[in-house]
């Protein structure tokens, strides 16, 4: 939903990091997008191409990996993915805050993040 604004921040961060390190060229940026964000990887790539145009990082590759949300149970300490509940009549499965192992409630550990993991650059 906010790919334009978020990609602007990504490009600014990469530009800053690359110029601080006096990079000649940025080859690849490794980005991790959590499954609980509303960021569409295709849109992020689309914006990345536009926003890096005419900068010294133009032509660098943006590699995007998705990361599944991790939750932790407040009762039994289960840590892992969400439990999904199915509605067979509607062919949908909804994530639930209920623990897959016990009846406890889970809290979200990760999945709401969009992290620039690393930048490959030549110096």
């Amino acid at each position: 939903m906010h790919e334009g604004a978020i990609t602007r921040q990504i490009v600014d961060s990469v530009l800053k990091e690359a110029s601080n390190r006096k990079a000649k060229k940025v080859i690849e940026v490794d980005l991790l997008i959590g499954s609980l964000t509303f960021l569409n990887p295709e849109q992020v790539k689309f914006w990345y191409e536009i926003l890096t145009k005419d900068t010294f990082i133009e032509g660098s590759k943006l590699s995007i990996r998705g990361s599944e949300a991790v939750v932790r149970c407040t009762k039994c300490n289960y840590e892992g993915s969400f439990k999904y509940v199915d509605d067979p009549a509607l062919h949908v499965s909804m994530p639930t805050m209920q623990c897959p192992k016990c009846e406890g409630m889970v809290e979200i550990v990760s999945g709401k993040d969009c992290i620039i993991k690393s930048i490959r650059m030549s110096i």
Partner: peptide, 20 residues
């Protein structure tokens, strides 16, 4: 020594949604 044009992987771990 790093040669001219040597490639480095810089670990950044920066969350762009963290500001909010």
């Amino acid at each position: 020594k790093a040669e001219e044009g040597e490639v480095f992987d810089i670990e950044l771990e920066k969350d762009v949604l963290e500001a909010n």
